[in-house]
Design a protein around this nucleic acid. Structure first.
Lengths: 355, 355
DNA sequence: TTTCAGGATGTAAACGCTTACATGTCATAA
DNA sequence: TTATGACATGTAAGCGTTTACATCCTGAAA
């Protein structure tokens, strides 16, 4: 491995000069610069980041922890959500020449802190890719490095949070069902109890129904955000309401809606004639389901960008007060809600007014 | 930031002892160990990886570069392929407590070497997430750190390659079309010219057709592996063959097959009645298209695991001779090939015999 | 010719860890 | 009692950078 010393020796200068050429802030005589650059080129020298980090006290690496949910080997859709997020983070980080360390965190496999601790020693800050991350681990992590939460609870006080306006998005889609399609008896296929985005969506659903007399929630069941849990949810609904189905099922995300569609399809039901179904997130496969899924778009990519930007701000200035950044959503109307086949409308959702 | 010295001071021992407790190889008196552990706990100490790396000469981080293809903002499916791959890599790496640094590499945005060079300074080795990576950059990268190619060309001599048996998979699916569905006039929606996996599939297609007289390739067009390029390909086919469509279109991957299905759908064609369509990769959304896609499954997750394992072997022993590891595929029959709706068969594909 | 400012370059400490080697301690054997 | 080992622990060098500070050089001004 070639080091700064090798370059310095070959160019006949000191390591300080090489370093100066590398970073180009201090003045170096043109002829020297060229000589050094030639040596660098010739040796194919690349600075060792470990030594740089140690010296500068900064690694220029941030970590992202993606929550890994159990999934059938052949149906892993975890990243369909995280995909855009990662791209967003990367598109911001690349402009700064920092790097991204990715960790999949699985509650079952890694209940303890050690793996997270080890990762925290390799980065300057950590992004939590989703809201439902155990507080106990979060606190320990945050004791070590700055942390920002993506899709965290909007009422978080201790950490930076960047999230979509789940409340407004869910309110919009439920309002659409109730007012455009006259849904009266709604069922909620909810997310995990501890997921903050799911909670926001649930609250929006309840509040909208409260304002529309005649429409009500006839039941709820929790799923894990996975396709499988959507299927199970569908079977539970079929078992409980056969012959007396809800008008519409509101799913906490698209994966579960897809699972639901499958379960209903197997049971010979047709959507939206027998029952309407809507999702949340606007993941790609939702366009190809039969019928195509009505859902709410969250700007995942922008979420990633903003979260990354905020984390890096905080790394530079740890004194910053934690803040909430809430991004607007869009209602994406296709036909699983009852709109005619071929419908494809995107409409911006007004941000919730926080009192 | 708490350091080893702080811990040592609090526990009343030397840094060497703390280090020994941390790594637990040398013997330390039980009472000392406990005292040190208590100090570590109390201070929330986590070793700084930069210092460790510098000292040990190893970072315990590997990089993966994922090729980023241009994609419509709302239709990014890059990671549907990479998703499983990443999980595979991570599932292996986590057992060793190493970490994964992810870089999206976009030929257009980053034509030069600097960003890759910078990343190479942060890792012990790199995985190239796909075969079509410019040789010129590859060589420079490999001069710095060990490199292993995922889905690289099977005839590569200079690098480790871990890939699926694309030839055999493609041969199987084409054989299915020709022998089971009597396809005579095939069209090939090929991948980018420089993608080694696409080349293998193309060669298999040609060789199979050579052995089946009566069936032939009536045309080819290249796409970029994206959904959009699949749509464009579809439109080109429609323009060229309207009224005289091919019996079947063999697509170099599922994304393009999905795009093709869309273009055909818009044109009022029905698949597989008017024309059969098959893909490659078995990505998740392929189950939900109409009709569900017949394709070839590649063990992406295993690919990731094996590539990671091999890279780490090479990092430990740089003297190892480069090797090829080829993983078997499976034929996944659904109904876009002409098999009856509801068909869902997976059958192992025999590895190609390399002479 | 000498002096001096300023630019160019060199020197060496520091970053936080690991580890080879040195030292210290204690029980046992002679 | 002293020598001997085995085990426990400490000392300090070294990993490859960055950077504050010291030094050297050059040309212009006096």
């Amino acid at each position: 491995m070639t080091t700064l010393y090798d370059v310095a020796r070959l160019a006949g200068v000191s390591t300080a000069t090489v370093s100066r050429v590398l970073h180009g802030q201090d003045r170096v005589r043109e002829s020297t610069r060229i000589r050094v650059q030639k040596a660098i080129e010739e040796l194919g020298y690349v600075p060792d980041n470990a030594a740089q980090s140690l010296s500068r006290g900064r690694k220029e690496v941030i970590g992202i922890v993606c929550i890994e949910r159990p999934a059938d080997h052949h149906e892993n859709m975890n990243l369909t959500y995280t995909d855009e997020l990662l791209h967003g983070v990367e598109s911001h980080i690349r402009t700064l020449d920092w790097s991204l360390l990715i960790t999949f965190w699985n509650e079952v496999i890694d209940p303890g802190f050690p793996r997270l601790a080890a990762m925290s020693g390799k980065v300057d800050g950590v992004l939590i890719g989703e809201g439902s991350f155990p507080a106990r681990l979060l606190d320990r992590l945050a004791a070590r490095v700055p942390v920002t939460l993506i899709a965290g609870p909007p009422d978080e006080r201790a950490f930076d949070v960047v999230t979509a306006d789940n409340w407004a998005g869910a309110a919009a889609i439920v309002t659409h069902l109730v007012t455009e399609h006259g849904s009266r008896r709604l069922f909620h296929l909810d997310g995990p109890p501890n997921a903050p985005d799911a909670s926001e969506r649930r609250r929006a659903l309840e509040e909208v129904l409260k304002e529309h007399h005649g429409s009500r929630l006839i039941g709820t069941t929790h799923g894990s955000f996975s396709v499988e849990s959507g299927e199970e949810g569908g079977e539970r609904i079929l078992a409980a309401y056969r012959g007396d189905l809800p008008d519409a099922v509101v799913c906490a995300n698209d994966q579960m809606a897809i699972g639901l569609l499958r379960a209903f399809g197997r049971a010979g039901l047709s959507v939206p004639e027998d029952v309407a179904v809507v999702g949340f997130d606007d993941i790609f496969p939702g366009r190809f389901t039969d019928p195509p899924l009505t859902t709410v778009y969250q700007p995942m990519r922008t979420l990633g960008e903003r979260a990354c930007a905020r984390l890096i701000e905080r790394i530079s200035d740890p004194g910053l007060a934690p803040a909430l950044e809430m991004l607007p959503t869009e209602l994406v109307i296709r036909s699983s809600c009852g709109c005619p086949p071929g419908t494809s409308i995107r409409q911006p959702v007004r941000q919730r007014v926080m009192e």
